[in-house]
Design a protein around this nucleic acid. Structure first.
Lengths: 194, 194
DNA sequence: GATTTTTTAAACCGATTGGTTTAAAAAGAT
DNA sequence: ATCTTTTTAAACCAATCGGTTTAAAAAATC
């Protein structure tokens, strides 16, 4: 009994996420959140409790909507170097596209002491899922002989992650997609050489 | 004629820079700037005009005070791979120290559409000085045979820069200094192998 | 038609934002 | 002692911040 909700929670979350993604946590005032989602301020608070509450749900939403697909590229069986290549090619494609707007997680990581602790921990947990997927690919590549058996997936994973984050911060390279692909080629052949 | 300024412009700039460095542009309210520098609000505006004005001068200050020393490591003659190694070892040392607080430039880059355009361009110009120094080292290394002559300093420079930025964002690696050094070793031997 | 819930708009809260102005006091230079 | 400049504190500005409350209107259920 009682009236139905007029808004679509998914759509609201998506709109809010887009805003946070573009402007960061502190760069996004509640007023704009209200404007872009179309929700009434009152409904907003009833649904999410606070600005921090919205943000945390947006992180989960971002994880599923924006990071799910590239993650699936890392998990395609059989695991190996090809996953890493496919993943980075996809990311380069995105970074060089005009829709590019960095990464919500990276922005929140940099905002660190400004963002709520819970949200930060949430992000770090998700990061670990990502680096875990990297490591699985590298282990498989070592097992199959694609890269030397002596390779250490542990630090190579973080090395790859650093490179990824650097690209996400710096955005489109001055010489475009071709330059980014050269960098990727270099990394891949380095992995093969050990 | 007239009274002398009681404050030391350098010290004021340094205090303000530290704050911006820690909290970013939007995370730093004018009130805290006033509190930390000890300047009166009125004097602040007479000296710098606006918050954006203070920030721009802090960028230049940061460039000289925080980035000058690592840059000099890249410029030590004779140029070559050793400069790159010394530079990254120094950066790793800093990143793993407890004084670490990321990089003002990286933070401002991420805040991008929130930060004044002039400041952003200022930063990008300085970044180019840095990548230029990288490129010079790589060229010298290619000339002397430290790395293959076929190496392309252009994209290798951006590759190194991406890695650097990634480290600055992610902070101390979970396994500490040793892990970061392994990553550096890997990069250097990759450069040598081509 | 009674009940329950959502929606809406508005008023309201105290605090803070970047920024300006005023006016008096303090200090240096001539 | 005079003139200039800096310093200080305070008042002031409109706007915005995250957040709460109220009360009426609009639906949906029974």
């Amino acid at each position: 009994m009682g009236r139905h909700k007029a808004y679509d929670r998914e759509k609201v979350l998506n709109d809010a996420m887009q805003l946070f993604w573009q402007k960061g946590y502190h760069g996004t005032p509640l007023s704009e959140l209200v404007a872009v989602t179309g929700l009434n301020k009152h409904s907003m608070y009833k649904e999410f409790g606070s600005k921090a509450g919205i943000f945390e749900e947006c992180i989960e939403h971002y994880w599923m909507k924006a990071l799910g697909e590239p993650l699936s590229l890392l998990r395609q069986k059989p695991l190996g170097l090809s996953n890493i290549i496919a993943f980075f090619e996809d990311r380069i494609e995105y970074i060089c596209s005009k829709e590019f707007k960095s990464c919500l997680f990276v922005k929140a990581t940099i905002e660190h002491d400004l963002v709520e602790d819970r949200a930060l921990e949430h992000i770090q947990k998700k990061n670990r899922v990502y680096t875990g997927a990297f490591a699985d690919c590298l282990k498989a590549a070592a097992d199959s002989g694609e890269i030397p058996e002596t390779s250490d997936p542990e630090f190579l994973t973080d090395y790859l992650f650093h490179f990824l984050v650097g690209m996400l911060v710096m955005g489109k390279p001055k010489k475009g997609k071709a330059e980014a692909k050269k960098q990727l080629d270099f990394i891949i052949s380095s992995l093969k050489a050990g």
